[in-house]
Structure formats: C-alpha cells, structure tokens
Design a protein around this nucleic acid. Sequence first.
DNA 1: AGAGGGATCTTCT
DNA 2: GAAGATCCCTCTC
Length: 267
Amino acid sequence: MPRKRKLLTQLSALQSNSSFPPSDVLDNLSTSTPEGDSSPKSSKYFATVKRNSSQLETDFFNQPCVSLAKSFLGQILVRKLPDGRELWGRIVETEAYLGGEDEASHSKGGKQTQRNAAMFMKPGTLYVYQIYGIYFCVNVSSQGEGAAVLLRSLEPLRGLDAMRELRSSSRKAPAKPLKDWQLCNGPSKLCQAFGIDKAFDQRDLSHDTAIWMVPGHELPGEQDVVATTRIGIGNRGEWTQKPLRFYLRGNRFVSVVDKKTEREMAA
DNA sequence: AGAGGGATCTTCT
DNA sequence: GAAGATCCCTCTC
C-alpha cells in the first residue's frame, strides 16, 4: 500500500476519536507541522505537558521477553534532540534475547559484566552497546533475568530531515540523500538516525526526558507479525534457528524480509 | 541481485 | 589476541 495512503489511514483513525491514544498524543499531532522538522521550539511548559500520561511506563515493559518483543511492534519511539526537535519512529522489527540459556545473548550463561549490566536492570532500561567499533545497537530490558529486546527497525514518522542529517554525517561520500526507507531499517541505522549512543546505556525509558515511548494507534494482529530467525548471530547451535525475530508483515521499513517464512504462514 | 571485504575498537578469553 | 546482535562500498554476473 502506498505510504501516503497509509498515513492518511492513520490520521483519520486518530481523528475519528477512539479512546486510544489519550489526548496529548493528539495534541502533539495537531500542533506539529506536516514536515515536523522546522517547527519552532516549544516552551518548557508545553514540553512538560507533552510527555506524561500517554507514555509507556514500567508496567508495559515488565512482560516476558518474547511477549515484549511482539508488543513493541507498532509502538512509537520518541527522541527529543538537544535542540528541541522531536523524532518519531514506529517500531516495525525487534529481536528477543533471553538471558542465561540463550547462547546468542550477551547475557548467556547468566553472566553479568560491565557491558551488559543494563540487561539485568529493571524492565524499560536501555541497553546500548557498541559493535564493530563504529556502530551502536539499542535494547530494552524486559522481564526475566538478563533478558532484553533489540530494536531493529523503525518506520520514520516525524523529524525525517533531522534523521537524514544524523545518518549522513557519519558517512563518507555526500552521495544521494537517503530515501525514507533507508533511515532506520537496521539496528545501528536507527541508533544513528535517533542520535542514540553509549550515553543512553542504562537510561530508563519510562523516566528519561530525551527518549521515551508512546502507544501506537495502529497495532498489529497475530496475522500481521512474522516470527523468524535472528540476524547476524552466527552459529549458536539450536539457538540459531529459533524464531525470536519479529516484524510487521509487508512493512517497507523492515531490514530483512523472510519470504519463505511468510509463504509458510497461514493466510 | 548477490558476494566479498574493510572499517574500527571495546569487551572478554 | 580474537570476535563481534553492522553497514557500506565495490566488484562481478
């Protein structure tokens, strides 16, 4: 489905009331420009009003890892940049990393280190680590000892110009401007686009002022979620093949599509 | 369209 | 000392 039409669908769903999400999400929408990027900085008072009742809290994050990984799909990650600009992205792809027994997890064997400490913290705590010396990945701690959910892809909703800047700055050739679908379709790309680095490690998603989540208005049903193997974990025995990656079927912003699994799904 | 390699550095063995 | 929950560019078919 064309993107424009999809956005229109979302918008009309919002405006035709529905009790969900609550009012301040609507406020955000109605006070933002369509572009969202060049909007004037809001006052402190307004910013305070903006982020309270609708944001996802600890009780949401406090669910088993696989359950949380699926529940994230369709929810919205919000990032407020130092200059006041807000970035919005709809979560479309996640991976569950269980503690202890999961051989592909940084917390395998139940071992806690300085790096992975955030995986053992309260649900909703961010675990950010550097990979290959140059990139970052962001996880959210879930219920369960050492368990966390990796955020793999977002559908950019607001602040796309800022995302493009952040993504392009760390690349070599100026090249062509990135397409919308290239902004956040990968765990390290979304970190770049949202300005998430090591400084966000161990922060609490339900109390931070620079990053938080709000409920999405278009949540998927069972049929819309593809469950398949995780990406880039190498050979981890039986854990290599477990269906612990989840993404929205048919969404253009997913990083890796598994057509075979999709064909095997019941229509 | 797909394969292959380089970048780059922290963490843990 | 080696590996790594990645990305991007280049080469080849």
